[in-house]
């Protein structure tokens, strides 16, 4: 519930921004857990910002597609990025550490949540991390890790075989040797 803010406001600070910092919202996960978060952090999510602007945020914001564990992680991210005085370098380092320890299942949840909540920075970070994990890995490894089964038709398989082939130039050697 948004609380009225009577705190003195710095001279050069936008009063609206200051209000957002002290107003808190409550986010409710799919499994019924509630989390408090400052409005300034919450609105880093474009989806939440829209809900706040449309004023459908009266009280608790339900997020039926995000479970509690994932929401807690996302909130950690939002809080860091809304933190006063956190330098870009600090945030970059935080992002790096934030995603580095995540196992695949967690990355999956977080990427879906970031997509649903429209948190661009987080989405970019997690997407990159998922791609990084796939780099230089065999197709088999990716399937195993991501629990995916091949569902290609024999024709597609044949087509892919062609894509993966290295066709050598004739055995002719280079010029005059």
């Amino acid at each position: 519930m948004a609380r009225k803010n009577r705190n003195p406001v710095g001279k050069n600070v936008d009063p609206e921004a200051q209000k957002k910092k002290t107003r808190t919202l409550t986010l409710k996960s799919s499994d019924g857990q509630e989390f408090s978060i400052s409005e300034s952090a919450a609105v880093l999510s474009i989806a939440i910002e829209n809900m706040v602007e449309d004023d459908c945020a009266g009280g608790v914001i339900p997020l039926p597609l995000v479970d509690g564990g994932t929401l807690a992680r996302v909130i950690t991210y939002l809080n860091k990025h809304a933190e006063d005085g956190a330098s870009d370098e600090e945030k970059r380092k935080f992002d790096e550490e934030f995603v580095s320890g995540m196992e695949m299942g967690v990355l999956f949840d977080v990427v879906l949540a970031a997509n649903y909540l429209d948190i661009r920075g987080l989405l970019r970070e997690v997407r990159r991390r998922i791609a990084d994990r796939m780099k230089n890995k065999s197709v088999e490894w990716v399937r195993k890790t991501f629990h995916i089964e091949s569902d290609f038709t024999p024709e597609e398989e044949e087509q892919m075989k062609k894509e993966f082939a290295w066709a050598w130039e004739g055995v002719d050697s280079d010029v005059d040797d």
């Binding site: 997407r127 230089n136 091949s150 892919m160 894509e163």
Partner: peptide, 21 residues
């Protein structure tokens, strides 16, 4: 699509597209 955009070598893109339909 956007995850695949983060792959920058031909080999990785080939492999990505060979995972599932």
């Amino acid at each position: 699509e956007r995850i695949a955009d983060c792959l920058d070598t031909e080999t990785d893109v080939l492999r990505f597209r060979a995972v599932c339909s």
